[in-house]
Design a binder for these strands. Structure first.
Length: 373
DNA sequence: TAACAGTCAATATC
DNA sequence: GATATTGACTGTTA
């Protein structure tokens, strides 16, 4: 799918842009700090080797991996609808936390506040600098605040992507923290019908010969001990000084099973075989109160990976098909409604930003990536 | 049924 | 504590 290449590259950069200091050109194997500090471990970091972009197995293969208990006997087999399978036993864990960035680089972020993205950024190398001392790794969430200034608006993203710029990583004042498994996003997601095993690949869509994902996607055990047959790589500990070969990223998977006709999407989803953490900052629900008063609902907070992924996809396709949304939801461990809501809100809010900007005499041209429906 | 606008409210930020 | 952000809900429309 040649036509996809450019957008893929863009997405790669684009996704990375959401967390400049995490920019990871997947075109080349390289190392990036991977912080994942299990509780009690204090600060730590790992340098994780990213694998170059490469074709991935068909979704069916991936799904199988996720869905088949046999693949990971020790994995809890979740039947939760739209959950990224393997949540317990074979889940992926994100390399770092990017919560701050999430907020910062929100699609809906201040349109005008487009501080020179690179101004206070340091080269990727810096990213490898002093390990985030920051204690934040512990909970997998970076320090609040600072990233805000990085917040490029949606159009800025597009512009940057168009230029093929690679956002420069900022200094590691902000400690990266391991992100939770994608599939653990919802703490309280209601069980749903059995998840579809991904959209059927349209006939005629050829797939390259691909390596067995299972040979690359090493499952992450939720337990410290790790399941047998699960060569988990402890990100925060032993791997501290030991490069870890990353599993293919989700982005690498996408193009292969992406529904035909959809815009190819490659995302900079750096998956790290780390310890899973709670997926999101969903507040612990207090059963006592919760049960009584017509449930105080807690709002889901996307993990940065989820957010970046969604944004990256959104950049390419404002209106993903149902099938694609389902696929996205499965891959991100989100509910279909959540994905749907995201795109709905994104469309609306990106447009609002645009309109606001125009009405306020904004000089920026209409965002190329934001098309009025 | 999907998309949308309006809105609420949890959460984050300052 | 005020404000901003943002995920999700509701009602309407095509």
């Amino acid at each position: 799918r040649p036509a996809m290449v450019p957008s893929m590259a863009s997405l790669l950069d684009g996704a990375a842009e959401y967390r400049p200091e995490l920019s990871i050109p997947l075109h080349h194997a390289m190392s990036v700090p991977c912080e994942a500090s299990p509780p009690g471990m204090g600060m730590s970091g790992t340098y994780t080797t990213l694998t170059p972009l490469q074709p991935l197995p068909p979704i069916s293969a991936v799904s199988d991996k996720f869905h088949h208990p046999h693949a990971h006997p020790h994995a809890h087999h979740h039947h939760h609808h739209q959950r990224l399978p393997g949540s317990a036993g074979g889940g992926f864990a994100l390399m770092r936390d990017e919560r701050g960035l999430a907020a910062a680089n929100s699609l809906y972020g201040p349109y005008k506040e487009v501080p020179a993205v690179g101004q206070s950024l340091s080269p990727l190398g810096n990213g490898l600098g002093p390990l985030p001392g920051a204690q934040q790794g512990l909970h997998g969430y970076g320090p609040p605040g600072h990233d805000k200034m990085l917040s490029p608006n949606f159009e800025a993203h597009a512009a940057m992507l168009a230029r093929g710029e690679q956002p420069l990583p900022r200094g590691l004042g902000t400690p990266p923290a391991m992100l939770p498994p994608l599939n653990g996003a919802h703490h309280s997601a209601p069980p749903g019908p059995p998840p579809p095993h991904g959209p059927a690949l349209p006939a005629g869509r050829e797939r390259p010969q691909l390596p067995d994902p299972r040979s690359v996607l090493r499952p992450v055990s939720t337990t410290e001990s790790g399941g047998e047959g699960s060569p988990r790589v402890p990100c925060a500990r032993a791997a501290l000084a030991q490069p870890v070969t990353l599993a293919p990223t989700v982005c690498q998977c996408l193009p292969l099973w992406w529904p035909a006709g959809s815009v190819g999407t490659t995302l900079t989803l750096s998956l790290c075989l780390c310890h899973p953490l709670p997926a999101c900052k969903r507040k612990e629900q207090e059963p006592s109160k919760e049960r009584n008063n017509s449930q105080k609902k807690s709002r889901l907070v996307f993990t940065d990976l989820q957010r970046r992924t969604l944004f990256a996809i959104f950049k390419e396709n404002k209106r993903p098909s149902k099938e694609m949304q389902i696929t996205i939801s499965q891959q991100l461990g989100l509910e279909l409604n959540t994905v749907s809501n995201f795109f709905m809100n994104a469309r609306r809010r990106s447009l609002e930003k645009w309109q606001d900007d125009l009405s306020s005499g904004g000089s920026s041209s209409a965002p190329s990536t934001c098309t009025k429906a």
